[in-house]
Design a protein around this nucleic acid. Structure first.
Length: 358
DNA sequence: TCTGGGGTCCTAGGACCC
DNA sequence: TCTGGGGTCCTAGGACCC
């Protein structure tokens, strides 16, 4: 299995249409104004040297890197390029599962996966001029983690950072197998694994488990007692490099569609809060109509000052894409919030019926 | 100098039924 | 007069990912 991930995708797309930005520290996030509320979506490798990275507040990024070029997020542009990338990938004829704008899994039967990986990189580059990294594994988990290990530390200008990784024979391609799993990852913190974040890592640490090897060797019953009968065994299997999930070429069917806004100034007038929710609900009803499947439930999210978030939902009496019904349901969900404190963010999400068709 | 926006999946607990 | 054990469905929240 292969995992394909484009290098600094969003920043690279911006550089493509503004070549004068090449080689400069570029930061994409929010509406491009680093004085406003927002976070970094992507930082170019040059910007990363200033300590700017995804998720960093834009204001902090501007302080760390005053000379960075700040650009607004342009979803439509990234979607268009992403479509080209995925079309190029699919042209290779293998089962392809898109995982986001800049990522996909590819399942292929071949004696020479490295050669296939180079072919993947070649068709993507030919179609879009973009560079990508390819991970190879015996399952999706291994392929996904291999990609991270194959990433360039700096952009491919010279290709050779100071003695980078145990880089494979092919630059931008890295392979993991059951045989090499522990040698490469055994000593890494559990948070290096896909699906284990800071919270889970902290809970594992309470059990005396910090590294991949320790988690792999842990008592499954003990971990399950802490994390539940599904996640517990999954955690241990993941640490062992095991993953039985398959790559699906089926078209993506969304479970929900939502929109949310963070306001530049917190709103304390609840008449305005209601009006904003109604407006979001209107947009969502258009998204639902465009999806061509009715919604069955509407969920409203409220983030209060300073940063406490709650959600409340309301089922629709019947599946619908009707604007006023969705709006009414959103307002009913909003009414479930007892607090009338100042609001930082509002969100509305419509859920679709679990699709039983195929 | 605080902490985006778009999602998915799992869990815990309450309601309700037999 | 105080109390069982299943099971299912729903909701809110947690955690994670891109």
């Amino acid at each position: 299995m292969l995992h394909v991930d484009l290098d600094q995708f969003i920043a690279a797309v911006e550089v493509l249409r503004r070549p004068e930005l090449r080689g400069k520290p570029v930061v994409v996030g929010g509406d491009g104004d680093p004085a406003k509320r927002g976070v970094v979506a992507t930082a170019s490798y040059e910007a990363r040297e200033f300590g700017v990275h995804s998720g960093l507040p834009l204001r902090t990024a501007a302080r760390r890197c005053p000379e960075c070029v700040f650009l607004p997020v342009d979803r439509a542009a990234y979607e268009a390029v992403s479509d080209e990338v995925m079309r190029a990938l699919r042209s290779l004829g293998a089962v392809t599962e898109v995982m986001g704008w800049d990522e996909a899994f590819v399942a292929v039967n071949t004696d020479d996966p490295e050669r296939f990986a180079r072919e993947v990189q070649r068709v993507i580059k030919a179609a879009t001029q973009l560079n990508s990294t390819v991970g190879i594994g015996e399952n999706r988990l291994q392929a996904k983690l291999a990609t991270g290990l194959g990433k360039p530390r700096r952009d491919g200008a010279a290709g050779a950072g100071p003695a980078a990784r145990p880089a494979g024979p092919v630059p931008g391609v890295f392979r993991l197998t059951h045989a090499t799993w522990f040698a490469v990852l055994g000593g890494e913190p559990v948070s290096a694994l896909w699906g284990i974040g800071a919270k889970t890592a902290a809970k594992l640490a309470e059990l005396g488990i910090s590294t991949v090897s320790e988690l792999a060797a842990a008592d499954v019953g003990l971990v399950a007692a802490r994390f539940g009968p599904t996640i517990g065994p999954w955690l241990v299997a993941t640490a062992r490099g095991l993953d039985s999930s398959h790559v699906s070429g089926e078209p993506y069917v969304p479970r929900s569609r939502g929109r949310e806004v963070t306001f530049q100034q917190d709103i304390d007038d609840w008449d305005r809060v209601r009006a904003e929710v109604a407006q979001l609900a209107g947009l969502i009803s258009e998204d639902v109509a465009a999806e061509g499947r009715p919604a069955i439930r509407v969920v409203v999210k409220v983030r209060y000052r300073p940063f406490f978030t709650g959600t409340h939902g309301v089922p629709l009496s019947a599946p619908t894409a009707d604007r006023s019904e969705i709006e009414q349901a959103a307002l009913a969900a909003l009414d479930k919030f007892p607090d009338r404190r100042p609001v930082r963010l509002l969100g509305v999400r419509a859920e679709f019926a679990a699709s039983a068709e195929t």
